[in-house]
């Protein structure tokens, strides 16, 4: 079975034909061609596929595209405009929050979701909010620094 799916992707409304058994992850990567969202463990354990659905972090590898009608989906491609990095992107770039980089889009989206609902998080809140993401380079200290720096940039008016 397939259906016409109306939803908002990275701020733009669109209508697509999708199969009922298509995962949001495969839909984003294979059909739309937005490969920023990564396939990691592919089973809900690592968080590399994290996107925002209605501003809340969600695992696209366990979300069926057929369940997101009418919702807003934001992927890592939605961050940054006109060549300017977003606060979280700048945080990860300048504070060396990325090592091999594979988990980074997931961490970036989980962090962006955190800053959207809590612009000034404590270190404990940052650690809690990133609890669904795994970095196998284990660069967590730098990642937490990156999010703190992103929060300070956000306070200066850079969007998260």
């Amino acid at each position: 079975m397939a259906r016409l799916l109306e939803f908002t992707l990275n701020g733009r409304d669109r209508v697509d034909a999708v199969a009922d058994n298509m995962l949001l992850l495969d839909f984003l990567r294979e059909k739309i061609g937005l490969t920023g969202t990564k396939t990691g463990c592919d089973g809900g354990e690592c968080g590399a596929c994290t996107v925002l659905i209605d501003d809340e972090p969600a695992l696209s590898c366990l979300t069926l595209a057929a369940t997101i009608a009418g919702k807003r989906v934001d992927t890592v491609e939605s961050l940054g405009h006109d060549g300017q990095l977003s606060a979280v992107q700048r945080g990860f770039h300048e504070k060396l929050g990325a090592q091999c980089g594979y988990c980074t889009p997931g961490f970036v989206m989980a962090s962006a979701g955190l800053l959207r609902r809590n612009p000034n998080p404590s270190e404990a809140e940052i650690i809690d909010a990133l609890g669904s993401n795994i970095c196998r380079c284990t660069g967590y200290v730098k990642i937490i620094e990156a999010v703190k720096y992103a929060a300070s940039l956000n306070a200066q008016g850079v969007s998260p």
Binding site: E56, A58, T63, S132, N133
Partner: peptide, 9 residues
């Protein structure tokens, strides 16, 4: 339960 993203879902 699990992690924060799992709890959102």
């Amino acid at each position: 339960i699990a992690g924060p993203t799992h709890r959102n879902m």
